[in-house]
């Protein structure tokens, strides 16, 4: 008998209970809710035309008229951030959806069939893993040109191995458990075993991975924009804003870079906290 068993027993209810008092979790969820909402309706909330030059002073400080100040071309920073939020938020969402769904399918197929199917898929995943995401994105940009599309596709592929390795190990563990053998002996159909038992068992881990993946995708896409290979000016993707504000930094006007940076960091922080909590609950439920 292990000591862990002594203390265990009623974890999930305790976890659910804890969630209600978990300030950090609530804060993170609130930040995410705001970010998602803004990315949906943000462009309509913008007080100014985001691309209109000289609606205010050049590199103006935050003021009542321009809450977050104005950039080096006199554009309203708040309006630009709001206008840029759909690309900045939904591009990583697309990456995560593509990478997670594709990666999970590959992993489940790999674990389910085993043998040469597993060997071939694992080898392919291994090769993709060897090409860092940024390199794949750069390669895609030099093939298809600058813009959001090429990096999104490249990152979706580049993130595949992380998801698929994790899910494959989870699926193999799950398939190795006696209850899977029991289901087969009972004559439960393969599809039912897969979708009623296997996939639900893997779902928490997949979701947690998706949350963390979203954070990485957001950082990587912003980085690609920052490098000038992603979304192009005058688009106000957050990465573009950060990069185009760099000269103003040295001139003593940090707002143009710092506010979008803050947004990126806050969003990623929030989604990481959510991901960590999902993982904790999944582990508690597993015990």
């Amino acid at each position: 008998m292990s000591v862990g068993q002594l203390a265990g027993g009623r974890v999930p209810r305790a976890a659910r209970h804890a969630a209600r008092r978990d300030v950090l979790f609530i804060a993170a969820a609130a930040v995410m809710a705001v970010v998602v909402l803004v990315s949906l309706i943000g462009p309509f909330l913008a007080p100014y035309d985001p691309n209109q030059l000289y609606v205010g002073p050049v590199s103006g400080r935050p003021s009542a008229a321009h809450l977050l100040g104005t950039d080096d071309l006199g554009r309203d920073i708040l309006s630009r951030m709001l206008a840029g939020s759909p690309t900045s938020v939904f591009a990583p969402v697309v990456v995560v959806i593509l990478a997670t769904s594709l990666g999970s399918v590959v992993a489940v197929v790999s674990a389910w069939f085993g043998g040469w199917v597993d060997a071939v898929l694992t080898r392919i995943i291994e090769v993709i893993f060897a090409i860092p995401g940024l390199v794949l994105a750069v390669l895609a940009v030099s093939m298809f040109g600058k813009g959001v599309i090429a990096p999104v596709i490249a990152l979706s592929i580049a993130y595949l191995p992380v998801v698929s390795r994790l899910v494959r190990i989870g699926a193999r563990t799950e398939l190795g458990k006696p209850y899977m053998a029991a289901l087969r002996i009972q004559g439960v159909g393969s599809l039912a075993i897969c979708f009623r038992h296997l996939v639900p068992a893997l779902l928490p881990a997949i979701l947690a991975q998706a949350a963390i993946g979203f954070g990485y995708a957001m950082l990587d896409l912003a980085a690609i924009s920052f490098l000038g290979l992603g979304a192009q000016p005058p688009s106000s993707d957050w990465g573009v804003m950060i990069s185009s504000g760099q000269p103003s930094l040295l001139a003593g006007a940090p707002e143009q870079s710092v506010f979008p940076s803050l947004m990126v960091v806050l969003t990623v922080l929030a989604v990481n906290i959510l991901g960590a909590r999902v993982t904790e609950w999944a582990e508690a439920a597993d015990r």
């Binding site: 458990k177 006696p178 209850y179 053998a181 029991a182 289901l183 087969r184 002996i185 009972q186 004559g187 159909g189 393969s190 038992h197 639900p200 068992a201 439920a285 597993d286």
Partner: peptide
């Protein structure tokens, strides 16, 4: 195939060592 397994399932069944692991915890 599933049909074959189902037919055998009516004849032979199995009980495993660890009842916790042999039940779907969900």
């Amino acid at each position: 195939g599933t049909a074959g397994r189902r037919r055998r399932a009516r004849i032979a069944q199995m009980v495993f060592q660890d009842p916790y692991l042999s039940l779907d915890r969900r």
